[in-house]
Amino acid sequence: MADQNRTDSRINALIARLDGLDGADADDLRAEIDWLIGRYRRLDRNLNKISRMSDRLQAEIMQLNDKLRAASITDPLTGLMNRRGAHDALQMETKAAQAGDSKGFCLALIDIDFFKAVNDTHGHDVGDEVLVNFSARLLGSMRETDLIARWGGEEFLILMREASLADAMALLEGFHEALRSRPVKTAIGPLTVTASSGLCQYHSNDHGYDSTVYRADHALYAAKEAGRDQWLLADDPKCD
């Protein structure tokens, strides 16, 4: 703006000086300078306009980037975070725990029992409904600070931030109990669904989150082996 004022005052001074001149040369000069002034004003106007348009485009690109980022970490069926998003969240949570910025976390992997049979018996649409409703039930059972992700086909991951092991056990037990006592709604009627889970607490000697996930997965496998419809803690002797 200051530059604009400075330029304008010089242009006005030039016009005032030209007004005092006479003769054909002065007229030519005046016409030439008028043209240059017109050109200058037009370029200046265009530059301002381009800046405005460019800023708008950039803002739109940023918004699109945000949408793409959100889509890239969301599971389209359930609306939960997908595995990629869960990896990012686990990495951040592990770093925070390692740096002493958080009290750590508990991690559960939950797998719907006999899900293949649901698909085979009732079809994939009903299978999808079970996944969607199961996800909603999980969301409803956990705390707002917990992160729930679709880890694979019928497998879900719960990251319980800053949860003590006692808190995590109570949350998980509550979910299993609720699932047992209230069937999942589907278009063909209510279906009784059970699940198996593995739970573990982050240890400072876990090498990255991979080993935390591995321990939860191991406990989940043991819960399946022990007859399903239950959860097991990673340190449980049944997991050995």
Binding site: R42, N46, I50, M53, L57
Partner: peptide, 14 residues
């Protein structure tokens, strides 16, 4: 139109 194309279009319009 990207920003450069907008500039070229403005020049042609002018």
């Amino acid at each position: 139109l990207n920003t450069g194309s907008i500039k070229s279009m403005m020049d042609m319009l002018d």
